[in-house]
Every structure is written in structure tokens, then in C-alpha cells.
Amino acid sequence: MDKNFFEFKKGFLQQNPVLVQLLGLCPALAVTTSAVNALTMGLAVIFVLLSSTFIVSVIKRLVPSQVRIAAFTVIIATFVTIADLFLKAWFPQISKSLGPYVPLIVVNCIILGRCEAFASKSSIFKTILDSFGMGMGFTFALLILGSFREILGSGTIFNIAVLPQSYQPMLIMILPAGAFLGLGMMVGFMNFFVNKKK
């Protein structure tokens, strides 16, 4: 049981895909202008990650190793299309503000990385745990960065005002530059605390 739990929890801190492995930075930087966008993106990635690693794990013995990357890519692209069409149909507003970053999940290195490094070698049960943990870790990092930027940049969180009226929003935090600065500092903090523990 402990071993299985480890597969789940490693994605949060020790091997957090965004903050430690520095994978999937493109969506992490682009969609974190608000907490809502960050959460939607995180959920979309969890869905694609879980479904595609599940399929990869099921068919791992059927796919010849020379064409495995191409096969993984097609599987991922299919689930991304499903997620994109779902968002377009049910949440057109959010889908619009996420723009091309939903289809860009196809080339997100986290997903291909987990398919290649974990799902193609492990049992189905472990794969699900691993993907869920990684997806949660990704969402967690995005949510923190998104909330941080939204609070400082517009004084709200999930569109609810939290700072007093007199607060002058730091516009830079919701601009591209703020994304880089925010993530850079988060990575720095993460390094600081991880190294301190050792």
C-alpha cells in the first residue's frame, strides 16, 4: 500500500512536473492569468493524462517499439480533441480565453513523458495512480501561480474581490512578464525548501 501511495504522492512535491521537472511550462505560463483559467487547464490536463496513459498501458504489448512515439501522439491528440470539443460546447467563455493552449496540450511534454517513461512499462493500476498524482501536481502548481497572479494583478481570486478597493492592481502580474517572474520565484522557493529538507 505504501508503495502505491508513493506513486500517487510523488507528483505533488518531490517530482512536481512544473516546479521540479520543469515540464509543461508553456500552459503553466500562458493560462495562469486567473485562477479559473488555471483550474480549467489543470482539469483538462488531468483528463488527457489519465485517459491516454490508461490506453497506452493497456495496449503496451501490442505496439511495436519503433512506432510507439507516433502511436502515443495520436492517442494523446485524440483525447485532446475530445477535451477541446467538450470545453467549446459547455464552457465557450473559458474555452475562448484559453485559446490555442488547449490544443497545445498535445505537445505538452508531461503527457508524452508519462506515457513513455511510466505507462508503457507499468501495470494499469500503478499507471492510473501515477497519472493522477502527476496531474494533481500540475493543477496544484498552476492553481497557486494563477491565484498569486490574479490576487496581485487584479485584486480578485476566482473573480471574487479579496483586496480592499484602495489596492492598486499590479498590472504587470497578469502580463506575460509577470508569468515569467512569478514562476521563476516559485521555482526558486521550491528549490530552497527541497534543498533545506535534505
Partner: peptide, 9 residues
């Protein structure tokens, strides 16, 4: 990576 991101900012 930390400083690289801040410079990119």
C-alpha cells in the same frame, strides 16, 4: 531555471 525564468520576465 529560476534565474533564467526571471531574466525571461
Amino acid at each position: 531555471a529560476g534565474i533564467a525564468l526571471i531574466i525571461a520576465g
